[in-house]
């Protein structure tokens, strides 16, 4: 089976605290911090976007790939809901920047928060089909939440990248499953700046139903139980949802701990469960089993079972670890700076 040959992440250093957003809008910070488990979130500065995050994450994945020649990468797929252009691909820039052009297939994927796991799913399929030696899947977002909306406490930025291949694996993909229905829980119409959502409707029938639908089907398909895994990673629009769904599926707090980044990072949308997987691989040992399930509004979940190989010990330290990017050397910004950085202020150009 195909699997991961190299992985990497990239995050902005800037953060804004929940209190800072709450102060601006007269909201109740404790209800976000305790209720949704969101302490702070990453903020991309003006010169950082989905493309730049994707390039840096891809470079970190190459560092851990054991010398993959970028020219041998046959496809590059970037999943995001914040591609910088409406018309012009993100993947071409990334391919050019890492030296993977011109003999390469490229597409930008969209599917709310599961665009990144879609890219991973398709990249793995290319390897399993024997069409190419390597395929690069990237999950990256600089997501936007409307001012004063609950989403503003979570919409964050980050990227995770995975080079898929068949040999020299860090983690083999043993099983996958996708689960999808038509669900109007979250959307952004053409030319609109901020997404809309169905409030509480984004919970039970949307996130929980699809995450459980995909996860339970994958457990049944694989004949495995939650107790067979060392680690589990779920989509994390906040800290509360993945904690609750893990518990309801039978996973423990300890299993989701290394990949649960949302309380300190926010919701990196397409990047959420993929970046959680990078943080989990950073602490995994050879032989560990990792359960992963994404969720994207609209709606669907892609789930994967990964088996970590001996090579993880060789490559783990060859690029910066996700927890270091998440917790160290942070730059805190006030709401005014955040609003400027996220282009929320109308001005003349």
């Amino acid at each position: 089976m195909a699997g991961i040959v190299g992985y990497g992440a990239h995050l902005p250093r800037h953060r804004i605290k929940a209190e800072e957003i709450a102060k601006t809008w007269g909201a109740d910070a404790p209800s976000y911090k305790k209720g949704l488990m969101l302490r702070e979130k990453s903020v991309p500065p003006p010169d950082m976007d989905t493309i730049t995050l994707a390039v840096e994450a891809a470079r970190n994945a190459l560092k851990r790939s054991g010398g993959v020649d970028p020219a041998d990468i046959g496809a590059i797929y970037i999943g995001s809901e914040s591609h910088p252009y409406a018309v012009k691909p993100s993947g071409t820039v990334v391919g050019e920047a890492i030296g993977a052009t011109p003999h390469i297939h490229c597409a930008d994927f969209e599917f709310a928060c599961k665009a990144g796991s879609e890219a991973m799913f398709v990249a793995l399929s290319h390897i399993d089909s024997g069409m190419m030696k390597y395929a690069l899947a990237i999950a990256a977002d600089t997501s936007q939440g409307a001012p004063s909306d609950a989403l503003e406490f979570s919409a964050a930025a980050g990227a995770g990248a995975f080079i898929m291949g068949k040999e020299n694996l860090i983690a083999e993909c043993l099983y996958t499953h996708s689960y999808m229905t038509d669900m109007p829980d979250f959307w952004r119409r053409e030319h609109e700046f901020y997404p809309q959502h169905g409030g509480r409707f984004t919970g039970e029938e949307a996130y929980f139903a699809h995450t459980k639908g995909s996860s339970n089907a994958l457990l049944e398909k694989s004949g495995m139980k939650p107790g067979d895994f060392q680690w589990a990673v779920f989509h994390q629009p906040n800290g509360k949802f993945p904690s609750r769904v893990a518990k309801e599926l039978g996973f423990t707090k300890e299993q989701i701990e290394p990949g649960l980044l949302a309380p300190a990072l926010g919701n990196t949308y397409s990047g959420a469960s993929p970046i959680g997987l990078t943080a989990t691989l950073d602490v995994a040992k050879p032989g560990d089993m990792i359960f992963m399930c994404s969720y994207g509004s609209g709606a669907g979940s892609d789930s994967f079972i990964w088996k970590v190989t001996e090579r993880i010990d060789e490559v783990r330290d060859q690029a910066v670890k996700t927890a270091k990017l998440l917790h160290e050397n942070l730059i805190y910004v006030d709401y005014g700076t955040y609003a400027k950085y996220r282009r929320k202020i109308k001005k003349n150009y």
């Binding site: 003006p46 010169d47 950082m48 493309i51 730049t52 390039v55 470079r59 252009y85």
Partner: peptide
Amino acid sequence: EFRRIQTESHEGVL
């Protein structure tokens, strides 16, 4: 680091 070095208004090339 790889960054955006120029942003041409709302419509231009990046």
